[in-house]
Amino acid sequence: MSAPERVPVKRTAKLFIGGEFPRSESGRAYEVLSHDGRLLAWAARASRKDLRDAVRAARDAQPGWAGRTPYNRGQILYRVAELMEGRRAQFEAELADAGAPDPRRGVDAAIDRWVWYAGWCDKVHQVLGGTNPVAAPYFNFTIPEPTGVVGIVAPPDQALLGLVSRLAPAIVSGNTAVVIASEPSPLPAVSLAEVLATSDVPGGVVNVLTGFTRELVPWLAGHMDVNAVDVTGVPDDLMPEVEALAAENMKRLHRAPDVDPFSPQAQSPYEITALCEMKTVWHPIGA
C-alpha cells in the first residue's frame, strides 16, 4: 500500500507592521488570483486603522534606523539580498503565478537592485552633498538627510522588482516606509516582508500593507505624520486628490522615472535624494 499523498501546508498572507505579522484588524481579506485564474491566497485587506498602525510603527522606528551608521545600514540592506537569494525559488514561483514572462530575470534584477542600493548608504552624502564655498569666514556644508516616514504605493505590475526599486532607495538614507503592495499581485511583497523580518532590518523600518489601492491611497496621502509619498503606483485619476491631500502637511511626492525597470536608468542616487532633505550647516571660522 503506497503512502497517502502529503497535503502541503499553505501560507496565510498577512500584513507586516512593526516587525509583526497581524491580520487586518478589520477582519477583511481579498482573493488573490493567478494570471490564469487560480486562487492563490486570501490576502489581508488592510483598513485605515492598519495604515495608521503602520505609520506609527514606521515613525517609532525612524530615529533608530537613521541613527545607525551608514556602514551598518549598508550591511543590513546587503543581507536582504543574501536572504532573497536563498528564497529565490519561492519568489520565482510567485512571479510565475503573477504572469511574469521571465520570473528568473525579475528575481535576479530585484536582488541586484538591493545590492546596488546597499552600497549607496555610505556614498550618497559625498556624491550629492558637499561643502559650500561661501564668501565669508564660515565653514558651510550640505548633507542629505532622510525626510522621515515615506509612503510607497508600489506599481501594480512588476510586483517584485517594481516594489524593490521604490523601497530600497527610500530606506537607504534612513527613512522608514509604509508600503502599499501591488493589489493584483501582493504575494511577492508578502514574501519580501518575510525576508525582511528574518534579516537584520529592525521592526517598523518597512511595513507592508496589502489591500485595495484606491481605498488606502487617500488615507496615506492625507496622513499628517507621513513626510513623503512615492506615488509610482497611484492611478493617474487619483493624482489630483493625492496632491491636494499632500498639500495639507506639504508631503513630498515622488514618482519613478518612466523607464524600463530592468534598465540601468531605473536606479540612481537621485532616487535616494528625492526622499531626502538637504540640510545646510554654518559655523564661523576664527582663531
Binding site: N132, A136, E277, M278, K279, T280, V281, W282, H283
Partner: peptide
C-alpha cells in the same frame, strides 16, 4: 530644519542651499 546656523544666524550666500523641511 533645512538651514542650521551654529554660533551665527541669518547668514546667506549664493553657494549655500536654502530651503525647508516639513511645512
Amino acid at each position: 530644519a533645512g538651514v542650521v546656523w551654529a554660533n551665527t544666524f541669518n547668514r546667506f550666500d549664493p553657494s549655500s542651499p536654502f530651503g525647508g523641511y516639513k511645512e
